[in-house]
Computed example of a mutant assay.
Amino acid sequence: MNDLKILYHHRTASRDGQSTHIEEMISAFRAIGCTVSIACPQVDTRDASGGSGGWVGAIKSLLPKHLYELAELAYSWVAYKRLVSMINVAKPDVIYERYNLFLLAGVWAKRRFGLPLIVEINAPMAQERRQYGGLAWPKMADWAEHFVWRNADYVLPVSRVLADYVIGKGVAADRVVVIPNGIREDQFAGLPSVDEAKARLKLTGRLVIGFTGFVREWDRLDRIVRWMASSDRYKNTHLLVIGDGPARAEIERCAVDQGIADRVSFTGAVRREEVPAISMAFDIALQTALVPYASPLCLFEYLALSKAIVAPDQPNHHELLTDNVDSVLYDPNDDQGIERVLDRLCGDANLRDRISVQAGRVIASKKLTWIEHARKIVALASRAIAAKTEQTSR
């Protein structure tokens, strides 16, 4: 049933990994024959930095926390009116919603129109905001989160770790289906060779350690800089960061202090379609420590590029990676964990080659493409539609 009419609903207004996921899923749905209508706020196309700026960031910075959360909840009414209007025009078969905290509109629309609701979950927002940003109304946040999750026909967490969390909050296990991030295969066709990519960046002859993403303090790329400067054994290494971020100035300052400023480079923000060709210059690809439930986009890109991946040893990575087979994992709690892994990989070209070859096979073996994900979601939507039809015919 690939001719479904899908109403894609989200509240994302920034240009970052969130928007990448949204755009790729919409493109994949359309590629397999679905008609997709989109209900969303206006996206700030000027912000390509990876931050969450724009009008949302402005409102958040101006309002006290308790008022901002009430404004988020009130926005559900705005979103609901938008959904009602679009449903009346587009006549969708299903609502597909990217979950966000205090966003109740999808459930309201489901109840009014009797449409199936599928909710994609990328993070446990109530827990995350309580832990990192604080919540003025934590009980209201928990209620809103559980209200959406429990009223969806299916919820699609991006990792098994997150799925277990969702089930632990009372969502029936048979309505929880893990759909991780993925890649679009055509973006990885016709790429330059490693040597060609290095030549374009004037890095010929260097052993390139690469990182892709919005660089923050907790990525601790300063550790990589200090490791590179620690011994003449590593004088051929170069740290290449594709992206930008608030930690860039500190990393560049660290490189100057360590006397290796010429061996650290940032591309700055680049268009997403340009990233694979630049990333081909990597010999070693870094996935730094992150929250235990995440499905990091760059990791899928590293796999598609057949890179020797270094990543933290944590459960969400075990869902994709096998240590010493398609990656080398390190203990994120070890002060020398990533350094020891880099010692191994930089000193052993055969190990790098073996890891790279196996990494390149993961995407196909686990079917980690947006198209495959779209097909799975359409199958779930068709099942939900059939169940609702059976209910109404009784």
Rank of each mutant, 00 (worst) to 15 (best):
D195L: 10
A387S: 15
L320W: 10
R216Y: 05
P92T: 06
L83D: 07
R82F: 03
V357N: 02
K110G: 01
V155S: 00
A58I: 11
V166S: 11
A13W: 04
R253M: 07
K110S: 14
G182K: 15
E72P: 01
L290Y: 07
D44S: 09
K198H: 02
A381E: 11
Y8K: 03
E217C: 01
S365D: 15
G17Y: 08
G182S: 13
P157D: 05
M228Q: 15
G245A: 05
Q287R: 05
S393F: 00
A141C: 05
V176P: 07
F211L: 09
V378P: 03
P332M: 04
R248F: 06
L104T: 06
D335H: 11
Y75H: 11
R160G: 14
A364H: 14
A374V: 12
G33F: 08
L207G: 03
T267W: 00
V94T: 02
E319D: 15
T267M: 01
G57F: 13
V357K: 11
D257M: 14
L135M: 14
N88C: 10
V378N: 00
D323V: 10
A79E: 14
A74C: 10
A285K: 01
P64M: 01
D331C: 09
A387I: 02
T322E: 14
E128C: 08
L62K: 15
W77C: 09
R82P: 00
S27L: 07
